[in-house]
């Protein structure tokens, strides 16, 4: 018996063939993109005005949106995981809605609420003279709206997995809930927070639908990379490819940084 491999028969073709087609379907477009990339002129193109501007704006907006998500999303995750709220399941479902909602719909909803005629937008305008739609700040709002669920879900998962008794230990040592959160809970779920933040940032960086609906498309002000790619396809396909490659590289980097969590096993 030793050394003999137990064979359960050949893999059935009816499964293998669709699997191969599926794999090719996912991989080939990316390979095609890389093949068509003008590698020699990549550096110069990257720093040309249009591309550079979009890149800069994207990085700025995605980072600001991520900051907003962390500041609001981590407490939200904590309340969902630890606060004994009535209707917690409903709140969790509501938080998840932007995750499955078509981003365009999110953009329309933002426009209706935060637009100059919207209930909140009107107040912002009359009290502070602030108008969010079709501004850089609007881009940040749209991206944060779409990306926040990623952070909340990730952090809440980490919080639920963490042993709540460690917080009880802190309480018996005289720590208030806030101190416990800062010094004990947050450090112990840091890997989850980091993963959520990276995921959130990547989602914000790639945001298209909500951004173009709510913030429009003004080069230098609201034209982020995904919008620039879409625009450039008609006028300057080479620039579209360069921008696409940059976004692809970012995605791969994100995946690599999260590999233990998402691609393990």
């Amino acid at each position: 018996m030793n050394g003999r491999r137990v064979s359960r028969g050949r893999l059935p073709a009816v499964l293998v063939l669709p699997a191969l087609v599926g794999l090719a379907f996912l991989v080939l477009p990316l390979v095609g993109l890389l093949l068509r990339t003008p590698w020699a002129e990549l550096p110069t193109r990257l720093f040309s005005t249009g591309v550079g501007e979009a890149l800069q704006l994207s990085l700025l907006c995605a980072s600001l949106a991520t900051v907003v998500c962390v500041v609001l999303g981590v407490p939200l995750a904590w309340v969902l995981a630890r606060g004994e709220l009535p209707g917690r399941r409903l709140i969790r479902a509501l938080v998840t809605v932007p995750l499955v909602l078509p981003p365009v719909v999110g953009g329309v909803a933002l426009l209706l609420v935060l637009g100059r005629r919207g209930p909140v937008g009107e107040l912002l305008d009359s009290w502070f003279g602030v108008s969010l739609p079709f501004t850089t700040a609007g881009v940040v709002v749209a991206e944060a709206f779409v990306a926040m669920p990623f952070l909340v879900i990730s952090v809440e998962g980490a919080l639920r997995a963490a042993d709540p008794r460690i917080e009880e230990a802190a309480a018996t040592l005289g720590a208030s809930r806030w101190l416990t959160f800062r010094r004990v809970t947050l450090p112990s779920v840091m890997p989850g927070v980091v993963a959520g933040t990276v995921l959130c940032w990547a989602r914000a960086l790639g945001e298209f639908g909500a951004t173009i609906t709510f913030a429009g498309n003004f080069p230098g002000e609201t034209t982020t990379m995904p919008l620039a790619v879409y625009l450039a396809l008609e006028s300057d396909p080479q620039a579209a490819i360069v921008l696409s490659v940059v976004l692809l590289a970012v995605s791969v980097a994100v995946l690599a940084s999260l590999r233990d969590r998402w691609v393990g096993g």
Binding site: I166, A169, T172, S176
Partner: peptide, 21 residues
């Protein structure tokens, strides 16, 4: 009186030391 305001010290069965400190 909540736990953080009681002058108690507690040793837990599995100690529950703070691993990041």
């Amino acid at each position: 009186v909540p736990p953080q305001q009681r002058p108690v010290g507690m040793v837990f069965q599995d100690y529950l030391l703070f691993q990041h400190m």
